[in-house]
Write a protein that binds this DNA or RNA. Structure first.
Length: 588
RNA sequence: GCGGCGGUCGUCUAGCCUGGUCUAGGACGCCGGCCUUCCAAGCCGGAGAUCCCGGGUUCAAAUCCCGGCCGCCGCACCA
């Protein structure tokens, strides 16, 4: 008995939505090609995401595009080079694979962080750690780096680069530039849609786990001392989302509970209000893709399951037939981690400015030194001393002076008489302060959504497949056909097709019988089919058939586009006042 | 990467154990023609497979053996 998953993959490959890449060379796991319908469906999903996440928030969310290849320093700074690496060890007896670092941590209660493969192996040997399942001896510890590596420039093997495993770093790197363009106002978000690559160890579930996939992400920056999210209460306070909390999961509970978004924030179940807001939008977005609310929930990750940059993470789950659940998006509270790291590694000023309501008085010590005294004391060595003193900030110098005992102050190995320095206390009025914004990140995998849309659209009716795509994402919007393939019906249908192509992806349906043509349209999930029948030549009208009800309306030929437009926007075409033709029962 | 199972027209599959009319059969789909006044599968004809790749055994290999590639399931990782 083939599962729904198999049926859907079958269907999708047969109809040319997607197939495995590099087929003529035997295929390559983790890579899929999209066919024409797949491209249409995916781009409709992306466009809908753009509408929900960017277009509806355009006054403070902007989309950018950055390269896929980045110099190694970027992912050194982001922590990926270090954390996207796993150490594995295999049992020589039962051939099970384990995370070597986890094994050491569990057994010995010590942290294995920062250890190299050989060091972990040494610890395993010394402490005679054996396979936790069968007790067999363990083999060599080996390292997986999940980043794809390459080099920038043909002559520069030293210029190591990585393919990005997430789009986020492109947004963090451009934080300051976009912040300026956004007139230095928080909060704001940077969105990006693009390909990412992860060198997965063994991807197997077809298009569910790919080595290269499209990600749709927002890095949303806000001032955590003033996180108030009016939109949350405006758009989402009445919205309920289903949450499965980490503390419940730890107790073995696996049933998510519905909670209003505002309550989840007030109760500190979701730590970041903006994270909560985007989760609410994510729920609405997934609903628009055809997933009812009782089939999706947010699962909070346990601390051990979270990525290195995250303070709190929720995975958005959609219930699927094959695996029970499938993560379609991740919602991470990245707080200040990434900007801090990039400030540290790049020395760039990635701060935002917070205006204070009242000026802050800052008292601090400033150190001044007597230049003439330096010259008379050090003579020809004086320039060297000035250079050393100038390299230090006033605060740092004040600290050294304050901490020095005796009559001399040692600065960078040079002893300077204390009498040369004069410490003054100063008061400054400050109207702004520098802050590192906090970050809430919603991140979607486009190909997984593509699968979800297929699974939720898939239905069968007496052995016939009907894809009930939401109209917005349906790859082909309208079909045209003559009732029978004869003139003058064919000529009218062809002219209509030509007109419809100017507006939509449309399809001219051919086939043995009208029933077969409708079946063909249903199989592709085409929402509307326009049929030219024997009344059309004299009356100048046609019928429009609705995929889901199979009912038709009679519409003048020049009104067809108007009706289809309305129908695709969600208007019930049967309420437009055109004559309705009830469906004919299937023949036995 | 390791272990188990698998790979035959576009798709599903017969054949494999027990090598030989298998120059690989069928169904769906596809192409051409006929029929057809509203919900697929009526008729006629046609195209389409060096049986995953490479090597070996044999007079003879889709079939037996070895290696590789790919897929599925398990370990680990994961949007």
């Amino acid at each position: 008995m083939s599962s729904k998953f198999d049926k859907i993959i079958d269907y999708a490959v047969r109809k040319g939505f997607f197939w495995q890449s590099y087929e003529i060379y035997g295929g390559q796991a983790g890579f899929y090609d999209l066919g024409s319908l797949g491209v249409l469906l995916k781009s409709n999903i992306i466009e809908l995401w753009r509408e929900f996440f960017v277009k509806q928030h355009q006054e403070f969310v902007v989309e950018i595009e950055t390269p896929i290849i980045a110099p190694a320093i970027v992912f050194k700074a982001s922590g990926h080079e270090e954390n996207f690496t796993d150490y594995a060890v295999e049992c020589l007896q039962c051939h099970r694979t384990f995370r070597a670092d986890h094994l050491v941590e569990e057994r010995l209660g010590i942290s294995a962080e920062g250890l190299k493969a050989e060091q972990i192996e040494e610890v395993i040997r010394k402490n005679d750690i054996r396979c936790p399942v069968c007790g067999g001896p363990l083999g060599n510890v080996y390292r997986f780096l999940l980043l794809f590596q390459t080099y920038i420039g043909p002559y520069s093997p030293s210029n190591l680069a990585y393919l990005r495993p997430e789009a986020a770093q492109g947004m963090f790197i451009n934080f300051k530039r976009v912040y300026e363009l956004m007139k230095r106002r928080l909060p704001f978000g940077i969105a990006q849609i693009g390909k990412v690559a992860r060198n997965e160890i063994s991807p197997r579930q077809g298009l569910i786990r790919l080595r290269e996939f499209t990600i749709m992400e927002i890095e949303f920056f806000y001032d955590e001392s003033n996180p108030t999210c009016d939109l949350l209460y405006e758009n989402c306070s009445d919205e309920y989302i289903n949450i499965l909390r980490a503390e419940d999961r730890a107790k073995g509970i696996d049933k998510p509970l519905p909670i209003s978004v505002s309550e989840a924030v007030d109760e500190k179940i979701i730590l970041s209000p903006w994270l909560a807001y985007w989760m609410c939008i994510a729920k609405k977005f997934v609903n628009a893709l055809g997933v009812p609310n009782n089939k999706t929930y947010f699962e909070e990750k346990l601390p051990s399951e979270r990525a290195h940059y995250s303070k709190q993470t929720f995975d958005q789950i959609v219930i699927v037939e094959r695996w029970g659940k499938l993560e379609v998006s991740g919602h991470a509270y990245r707080h200040t981690y990434d900007l801090e790291r990039h400030i540290e590694f790049s020395r760039a000023d990635l701060y935002a400015i917070r205006q204070l309501k009242a000026p802050k008085i800052i008292r601090r010590s400033v150190v001044k030194y007597d230049k003439n005294a330096v010259i008379s004391f050090f003579g020809t060595k004086a320039p060297q001393v000035f250079k050393v003193l100038a390299s230090l900030s006033s605060e740092a110098l004040a600290k050294i002076v304050a901490e020095s005992k005796g009559d001399g102050v040692v600065v960078e190995g040079i002893e300077i008489p204390k009498t040369i320095f004069r410490v003054e206390d100063v008061e400054e009025k400050v109207w702004v302060e520098k802050i590192i914004p906090h970050v809430a990140e919603p991140s979607f995998g486009a190909e997984r959504l593509l699968y979800i849309v297929l699974e939720y659209a898939y239905s069968e009716d007496g052995g016939k497949v009907i894809m009930k795509f939401p109209k917005r994402v349906a790859p082909i919007k309208v079909g045209v056909t003559p009732l029978v393939d004869r003139e003058p019906l064919e000529g009218i249908a062809h002219r209509l097709f030509k007109e419809l192509k100017r507006h939509y992806y449309a399809m001219y349906l051919e086939g043995d019988s009208i029933g077969k043509k409708y079946a063909q349209a249903d199989e592709l999930g085409i929402p509307f089919v326009v049929t030219v029948d024997y009344e059309s030549p004299s009356k100048g009208d046609v019928t429009i058939r609705d995929r889901d009800t199979k009912k038709q309306i009679r519409v003048p030929i020049d009104g067809v586009v108007k009706v289809i437009d309305a129908g695709l926007k969600g208007v019930d075409i049967f309420s437009l006042g055109y004559p309705i033709i009830e469906r004919v029962e299937d023949k036995e």
